[in-house]
Computed example of a mutant assay.
Amino acid sequence: MSNKFSEFLTSSLRNRIIFTLVLLSIPMLAGLLVTYEVIQLDWLSFMEVQPAYRPMEAPRPVPADSIPVDGPIYIQGLGSPENPVEADDVSLQRGQILYALNCAVCHGPNGKGDGPMAAHLKEQPADLTDVGVQNSSDGTLFLVITNGVPGSMPALRENLTPRERWDVVNYVKSGNLTPPEVVSTALKGQRTPVPTLIPATMPPVDLAGAAGPAKCSIGALDLIGLWVEAGTPESDPFPFTDVNGASCQATFAEDVQPLFTESNMWYPGAVACSSCHNANLAAASANMDLSTYEGILAGSYRTDASAAGNDILGGGVWQDSTLFLKLSTGQMPLGRPANIPIDEHGPVILAGTQVETP
């Protein structure tokens, strides 16, 4: 009798344990099914289940009466804007570089719609040399670049500034869509070489026999940094030690400013920084003027000539500055050939004069 009762208790306890485990496993199993989306519930919020742009999706309309943060480049619903950027040599060269970086992969180097990605796209890229495209207004092309074309072309408003979009428009409308290497070769002979640039393939210049005060060798970025850390003097000389250990001094006007206002300073064929960043703030890239002492100190994204913008000199700490980041990583000037290495010291230049030490 006792054995049967013991077996009964054991069997009952076992059943209760099994029943309890089954009850506990049900919510755990349900949780796993929901977590791994075997069961999808609309009322749950996951990071990937939220309003977001999808590939090739048309951008959402902006709220009524809103103005873009970078200024009223155009107002939605009021037609295509007027082109504020003159189609001069600088704009066309900028446009050619930007087109090669952002557009040629689909539209092709000559704008024929035959880029390397064209064969993989559902919609064939437009032939930009077609008369319909060429007869379109500048503002129409600007809006296409800005907003994209639903289902076939992504919006580039996040990739290109308004000024850069206008440069691309000018280049496309120039009727001279030319592969980058052809344009670079054609323009190379028109640029004035700067004698103070020392290409990396040349040996250091022997300063001992130079006529007049001996020049000093120093990396361009290092020179700007020493000027910044000396308090950005406008006319007073600031000291530095060149790559050969000589004691030297330089001034802003004679040695620093040319790095921003002369071509070929950062690599052979480089355009002057001031060709894109100049006193015409409305059209200047990043609304920044690098052509003058006052403009450099005033910074970027300025609303007008009397206003100060964002500091580009790192608050006196050069390597923390926006300008150092752009120059040291090759983002400025535009169009650096891939075969020219980037050096955090910048190209070695001849600058300043040696100072006799007692």
Rank of each mutant, 00 (worst) to 15 (best):
R163F: 00
W166G: 05
W166V: 07
W166H: 07
D167C: 03
V168E: 07
V168R: 04
V169M: 10
K173V: 15
N176C: 03
T178P: 10
T178W: 05
T178Y: 00
T178C: 01
V183A: 09
V183L: 13
S184Q: 12
L187Y: 08
L187F: 04
G189R: 07
R191K: 14
V194E: 14
P195R: 07
T196W: 13
I198C: 03
I198N: 14
P199A: 11
P199N: 05
P199K: 11
A200E: 14
A200K: 05
T201H: 09
M202A: 15
P203H: 12
P203I: 08
P204R: 06
V205L: 15
D206S: 15
A208C: 06
A208W: 10
A208L: 15
G212I: 01
G212K: 08
G212R: 04
P213M: 04
P213L: 11
A214M: 11
C216N: 06
S217I: 15
S217V: 08
S217Y: 03
S217K: 14
I218W: 01
A220F: 07
L221T: 10
L221Y: 10
I224T: 12
G225N: 02
G225A: 07
W227S: 03
W227F: 00
G231P: 10
P233W: 06
S235G: 00
S235C: 00
S235I: 11
D236I: 00
D236Y: 02
D236T: 14
P237L: 07
F238M: 09
F238Q: 05
D242Q: 05
V243I: 13
G245C: 04
G245K: 05
A246Q: 06
C248K: 02
Q249N: 10
Q249D: 13
